[in-house]
């Protein structure tokens, strides 16, 4: 394979050794990355006892699909799924709507007060109010226990604004903007018709960054939401897994034999569906990733290397 593409110049011995090491290293890296994926896939269709005793370490043992059955029959998981999709789609749309214009404006050298605004925005990277004040703000905005609490407070990420700004600065030449202005183009139209179409990579990257963030986030739902019907998927998963940890010792509750028995059977169910749920919840991200990956590499590189 390498030979077919390789240039006609013969490789020296040193090169060959180097190449050998590279391949060996890449193989190790591959195993390290691949093993957990395979393990989780196998564990999700294995008997949980085999998983816990360590008998199952690579390929599935005593194959059972009971875990998936439980996942697919659990209405809370589907509701969580739906909520997560809502949070991710709406949240990411809002993120883009806020980040891209902000980043573009900050990338323009003729933007008066640019340094001042940038300073202010950067400041929030280093100092923030902390949990309680943030909670109070959200509460006073009337957002507690609403879906907005998971979307609005995280509408803009400074880090992403900076990345996008650097992208705009390095890929959209000032001359382009001047030419457009001479032709009578307004700033809004310039952004909409010229800048955005040229910025597909950064849009994809931002969508991915923000989207994955929304998909995986659970802490804000933990803090701001009170009713289960609004919980995102990660929160539902957490609850399922936490039920497993619950035992007579840890509850401090008035206990009886029946409760203990149920908890113990819940623990089994939980260990059965744990891996299934992990697979189901990460699948969409894994599925989307290859399509965005092309932009991903390109976008981040362009943002970081000026050229």
């Amino acid at each position: 394979m390498a030979k077919a593409i390789a240039n006609p110049i013969r490789e020296s011995k040193g090169d060959k050794i180097f190449l050998g090491f590279t391949y060996a290293y890449l193989c190790v890296a591959l195993v390290v990355v691949l093993y957990p994926l395979i393990y989780i896939l196998s564990a999700s269709i294995s008997n949980p006892t085999a998983v816990n005793t360590g008998e199952m370490w690579l390929f599935p043992k005593e194959i059972t699909f009971a875990g998936y059955e439980l996942v697919f029959n659990n209405p809370a998981i589907w509701n969580g799924y739906l909520n997560t999709i809502i949070y991710t789609v709406l949240g990411t749309a809002l993120n883009l709507a806020v980040t891209l214009p902000a980043a573009y404006a900050l990338s323009r050298s003729d933007f008066v007060g640019r340094g001042w605004f940038m300073g202010f925005i950067l400041l929030t990277m280093f100092f923030n109010g902390g949990l309680v004040p943030t909670y109070l703000v959200v509460k006073n905005l009337g957002l507690v226990n609403t879906m907005g609490a998971l979307i609005l407070p995280v509408a803009a990420s400074v880090w992403n604004i900076v990345v996008a700004r650097t992208f705009f600065q390095s890929t959209i030449p000032k001359e382009l903007q001047e030419a457009a202005h001479i032709d009578g183009c307004t700033n809004l139209r310039l952004f909409w018709k010229i800048v955005l179409p040229l910025s597909a990579p950064i849009i994809a990257v931002m969508a991915l960054f923000y989207g994955v963030g929304h998909w995986n986030s659970y802490f804000s739902s933990l803090i701001y939401l009170n009713s289960e019907s609004k919980y995102p998927l990660q929160m539902v998963l957490r609850q399922i897994l936490v039920l497993q940890e619950m035992s007579a010792e840890t509850t401090g509750a008035a206990m009886n034999a029946d409760t203990a028995a149920l908890m113990s059977s819940k623990a089994e169910t939980a260990s059965l569906i744990k891996y299934g749920v992990i697979v189901v919840s990460t699948l969409p991200i894994i599925a989307v990733y290859p399509f965005l990956q092309r932009y991903f590499v390109q976008g981040v590189m362009i943002g970081s290397v000026k050229g």
């Binding site: 949980p48 006892t49 998983v51 816990n52 005793t53 497993q244 035992s247 623990a267 089994e268 260990s271």
Partner: peptide, 12 residues
């Protein structure tokens, strides 16, 4: 070990 691992030993 975790409680589940102990559980697995018990079950076997």
């Amino acid at each position: 070990q975790t409680a589940e691992q102990k559980q697995a030993k018990g079950e076997s």
